[in-house]
């Protein structure tokens, strides 16, 4: 196969073409509640004025599991993490660049969004996923 001719984010709240890869969520203009998915009204306060919001690239792991037998066969064991971004928005994704074992997860270490290719379609478009990796720059808030 030739070099990919285009890329597409694996979900539409991952932004690849505006500086460093980051997530964009939706924020209630009334109460400030922020979420990744699209809501017709705010699930917290019922407010109807929702604006797009660029989300921080760093956060901390609140919970995790290592899926072993339960993992999709074409993916294999993986580490699922719930991350609280520095602005308080929660995101679920994989912890990457670690062995898929419980001992590899350190909830005291800040994490940062990273991207990687996750598949290519018949027209050569490459899908780009995001995950979290330990933040060696250490810029997350404690």
């Amino acid at each position: 196969m030739s070099e990919p001719t285009a890329t597409i984010p694996v979900v539409d709240y991952l932004v690849l073409d505006d500086g460093p890869a980051h997530l964009v969520g939706n924020r209630c203009e009334d109460c400030g509640a922020t979420f990744l998915d699209r809501h017709n009204a705010c699930p917290n306060c019922g407010g109807r004025r929702i604006e797009r919001a660029r989300l921080p690239e760093t956060g901390r792991i609140e919970s995790y599991t290592v899926l072993v037998r339960g993992a999709p066969k074409h993916i294999g064991p993986f580490v699922s993490v719930l991350v609280r971004l520095d602005d308080g928005t929660y995101v679920k994704a994989n912890l990457i660049d670690v062995d898929p074992v419980a001992d590899a997860v350190d909830t005291d270490r800040p994490v940062r969004i990273v991207t990687y290719p996750v598949g290519t379609d018949d027209s050569g478009t490459e899908a780009i996923a995001f995950g979290f990796a330990y933040d060696t720059e250490g810029s997350a808030q404690p």
Binding site: P9, V10, Y13, A71, H74, I75
Partner: peptide, 26 residues
């Protein structure tokens, strides 16, 4: 993950099943 042409679907615009890619919902 491979094959056909990626098309964004659903409210999150996913182009493939995200179980095992964006953590787990199982």
């Amino acid at each position: 993950a491979e094959g056909n042409e990626f098309t964004a679907e659903g409210r999150d615009g996913h182009v493939m099943p995200t179980e095992g890619i964006l953590g787990t919902g199982q």
